[in-house]
Design a protein around this nucleic acid. Structure first.
Lengths: 103, 103
DNA sequence: GTATGATTTAAGTCATTACCTAAATACATC
DNA sequence: GATGTATTTAGGTAATGACTTAAATCATAC
């Protein structure tokens, strides 16, 4: 929990997660989307991985990163529960979601 | 958004919000629940207030703090949407909530 | 095995954050 | 108005985080 919220406190890291929400990417592809150095991006990816928000898999000389959406959603949800026991907006959003997806 | 996640990156601040979820508290009552100095707690409260997560009202010599649950829930929900467009756990949690509360 | 490209590790700097103590401010009471 | 309590501001230090460049690692291709 601490590591997750710490990871989410950086705009860059939140953006990385948003990119990974659409598709898996290699470290290089992620780095190309930001203006900071590759080592800096690598550090951010390490933070995200230590928080359990992404996983990495080495294929050949590339390292592919992917989002662990469940962990993110579970953590946010758990804390929202703790602090907003009767979380109206969350509920409303989810109701809309359920409507769209039929479950 | 940045300020909210920055505020949430501190365990102490998350705990303060959890306390305020149950009831409003004065600055002193909050400080009494932690082992750090009162000025340190005051700084944390400032961070939370700047993030829009709490509001304060001065009554006599006391300052009462209360949670702005909507802002917290909305922000978490918005980012969850951005990163987990089909957020199963969030939905499941909310479905349970809806059941309990009938709406 | 040498050279090339992808990624991470290492080492160091700069800025920010968290914390403390001491002092200031504001309110209530006598 | 002097005293006591609640809270914040000020000033300073230590720890943490983000970033950089340079070097190391590892896989690929020649």
């Amino acid at each position: 929990m601490q590591r997750v919220f710490e990871a989410l406190s950086s705009q860059i890291r939140r953006k990385i997660l948003a990119y990974l929400a659409h598709t898996d990417l290699t470290a290089g592809e992620i780095a190309a989307r930001f203006e900071i150095s590759k080592p800096a991006v690598s550090q951010h990816l390490t933070v995200l991985e230590n928080a359990g928000l992404v996983t990495s898999e080495k294929r050949g000389q590339f390292v592919h990163y992917s989002l662990v959406a469940d962990h993110l959603a579970n953590t946010l949800s758990a804390y929202a529960q703790e602090v907003c026991p009767v979380s109206k907006p969350l509920k409303a959003e989810s109701a809309a979601l359920a409507k769209t997806r039929g479950s």
